[in-house]
Design a protein around this nucleic acid. Structure first.
Lengths: 224, 224
DNA sequence: GTCTATAAGTAGATAGAC
DNA sequence: GTCTATCTACTTATAGAC
């Protein structure tokens, strides 16, 4: 049985994944509650009733889409915060890894951000709120380390600063998807690297202590 | 007839406004498409059918809620950009007036932001996209004036900078409503003034030229 | 201006044939 | 694993009594 698992089982997993990908695209673009199971079914060329062979409810699809993304997010933040680096390198690494993850799983993170009020109302997603809070606390620890080390200015409100930066990265990534459109219609083309540099510089300027504005931006540390 | 207008007409206007206020609260909290006309009717203690005496469609309610807010937004930005002030004072005034308006009409602006994809799909709301784009261009002119005056650093990407700041103000104001909740549950209490100072400083640090990081933040000019 | 009553359509989800 | 067929509930909106 174990030796044959690859054959039949993999095919079934793929089918699930195709459905989840279609659902993620819909949820990210139009919202979870606005998307109908018929639209998802149409996207993968089956009838809506057939979806219920793979998933018990529409909400179960949502859960599968966001779970891994938010747990990875917490893991990243905690790993970087616990590493042996100076606070500024940690901070830059947090931003760059976060943006890299946002770009790679943009639908999942757009959904997590856009449906945050839905998640907060639903007891099934309490773990998600908790994981995001823990990621937040890891960021906060990095900021406070930076103030102690004299790299960041003492007047920082870590709560406001981190929540602002996190929203900035989330909405910036969502806007990057093009489907959004932003306040302009003539949309310039930016590479992910260009955007990452922009946001890194933007965030660093907001936390650095007075004399350090002009210093070079440290590279992110992949072994963090 | 003109002399009696105040009596009966005002009462009818008030009724409309009570309904619109309820609708705005629902749309801002749960989204336009997710909100049902029955919920709005329940909030003002009438039956759903009776709403159609005041409004032809649910979308008409949405239009009434957002129209004034977005036209005011454009007017503010254009008035400040066209005033005779240095670019930094204009920039600070833009931010402070914008946040003040966001706080005053928080539901309308939260709806405009959260339903932006809906507005972009709907031909009836093209004027809204256009007005926001024009406000955007007014901000951009201020930024470019600042670069010319040497107040802001030359490397600014005005497109990225303004769209980032605008999203920052919008999401910051929405988060300020409490009903949101943000990544933390233990939510600190901030006054609107404290928040305004924070965002003004945050944005200013991102645009000021190298040597000017420590200079005092100019007061906003109300006569702008 | 609100109610009663209802039309016409669509939502998420289920049962059983194949 | 997908289809046919359908249930129940709920959606926006309308018609006409009061």
């Amino acid at each position: 049985m174990a030796s044959r698992q690859g054959g039949t089982h993999k095919k079934s997993v793929d089918r699930r994944q195709v459905i989840l990908d279609a659902a993620a695209r819909r949820f990210a673009e139009f919202g979870f509650e606005t998307t109908t199971v018929r639209q998802i079914a149409d996207d993968v060329n089956i009838l809506s009733g057939s979806l219920y062979h793979h998933f018990a409810t529409k909400e179960e699809m949502l859960g599968e889409i966001v779970r891994g993304a938010v747990l990875d997010q917490r893991e990243r933040a905690q790993r970087i915060a616990a590493s042996r680096l100076d606070a500024e390198t940690k901070f830059v690494t947090l931003i760059r890894e976060e943006l890299s993850a946002l770009a790679e799983r943009i639908e999942a993170y757009a959904i997590i951000f856009n449906e945050r009020k839905f998640f907060r109302r639903s007891p099934d997603f309490l773990y998600l709120i908790k994981a995001r809070k823990e990621a937040f606390e890891a960021w906060r620890a990095v900021l406070e380390q930076g103030v102690e080390e004299g790299l960041f200015h003492a007047g920082i409100d870590s709560y406001l600063t981190i929540s602002t930066i996190m929203r900035m990265l989330n909405t910036g990534a969502d806007w990057y998807r093009h489907e959004d459109g932003s306040p302009l219609d003539a949309m310039a083309e930016y590479s992910l690297e260009a955007l990452t540099d922009f946001y890194t510089g933007f965030a660093l300027r907001s936390v650095r202590s007075a004399g350090r504005a002009g210093e070079p931006i440290p590279a992110a540390m992949r072994q963090a």
